[in-house]
């Protein structure tokens, strides 16, 4: 039999105090973030990998907002990752290689698509939701593959030239700037997510996850709240994708050569994300099937990641 806890009114923390206690930084969190700077000194040859891990972490964070907190089970979030990656890549290709504004544009593009698809997503549940998100992701894969005049199709987007980050740091082969750029974006969006989930809005999302029908009764319109977090999460996934754009471009790249690290950099946004975690060993020939397949790989790797980022939050 569960014990009934009676807290005296004077010791019970108020809602503000409760949220403030949750937002307080713990020592282990500070140490964790400081540790993320260590690759600059300890593993300077693996900074490209480290930046891909940071990108995947940011993508996982965006999935966590809707899946872990709001309870929207999605299999198609790579859609926004891809939109972000292509937006940033295309903008840079067309002559505007400024990195930070590229992120903003990618967030806007992904957020807009998230807003439009959100009307569908927030109206279906269970299997239909899983299948519709999966369907949206697959439509995006098909679209990116067939619109090869725009995206380069299965070969990936070519000719992306990024300017120096903040006019100072060049995106070089070593990935110093790339890791700093990815880590900075990850940290900023981590702070934003932390703020969101520990706000009254974030609490209402958890309530909606637990009981969709009951939350409107206590003044939280479920559908509107879900739509809002879906757009936020889509924009974040777009930023994660956009962080892929400044990949180093080796001049003598020939795909299919013995050294696969030297393969032509591909911006097949939908597939490229997990190369840090999941797809690390899965560098294969770029055919449509492969892209579709790896999209699943990455998406699910990210879902597993939820646990990790959940713990981090």
């Amino acid at each position: 039999m569960p014990a009934i806890r009676t807290t005296p009114a004077d010791t019970a923390p108020g809602p503000q105090a409760f949220l403030a206690a949750q937002t307080r930084w713990r020592l282990v969190e500070i140490l964790f973030w400081l540790a993320l700077l260590s690759p600059f000194f300890l593993l300077p040859t693996y900074l490209t990998l480290a930046s891909q891990i940071a990108i995947t972490a940011l993508f996982a964070l965006s999935v966590d907002l809707i899946l872990g907190y709001a309870g929207i089970i999605t299999l198609g979030h790579a859609l926004f990752f891809g939109i972000g990656a292509y937006t940033a890549g295309l903008v840079a290709k067309w002559g505007w290689g400024e990195a930070i504004s590229g992120l903003v544009l990618a967030a806007l593009a992904a957020g807009f698509v998230g807003y439009v698809t959100g009307f569908i997503i927030t109206r279906v549940h269970h299997l239909a939701l899983i299948m519709i998100t999966l369907g949206l992701g697959l439509v995006a894969v098909e679209a990116a593959n067939s619109a090869s005049w725009l995206t380069g199709g299965a070969d990936g987007l070519q000719g992306v030239r990024m300017w120096k980050l903040l006019g100072t740091f060049e995106f070089d082969l070593w990935g110093y700037s790339a890791y700093g750029y990815s880590l900075g974006a990850l940290f900023v969006f981590f702070l934003i997510s932390r703020r969101i989930v520990h706000s009254p809005f974030g609490l209402s999302l958890r309530g909606i996850r637990e009981n969709l029908d009951r939350m409107p009764a206590i003044g939280a319109p479920s559908r509107a709240r879900l739509h809002k977090i879906y757009v936020i999460s889509a924009a974040m996934a777009g930023v994660a994708g956009a962080l892929l754009a400044p990949r180093p471009i080796p001049r003598s790249a020939n795909r299919g050569g013995p050294n696969q690290r030297q393969r032509r950099p591909r911006l097949d946004g939908l597939a490229g994300c997990g190369s840090g975690l999941a797809g690390g060993g899965a560098v294969r020939g770029p055919d449509a099937h492969d892209v579709a397949h790896r999209e699943h790989v990455d998406q699910f790797a990210v879902t597993v990641d939820r646990q990790v980022s959940d713990a981090a939050l």
Partner: peptide, 21 residues
């Protein structure tokens, strides 16, 4: 053929949106 694979996914999305079950 240009629309080939889109078709079934779009039909899927529309159908499930109208009839989730």
């Amino acid at each position: 053929p240009a629309l080939g694979s889109f078709l079934i996914y779009i039909v899927l999305i529309v159908l499930l949106f109208v009839r989730p079950r």
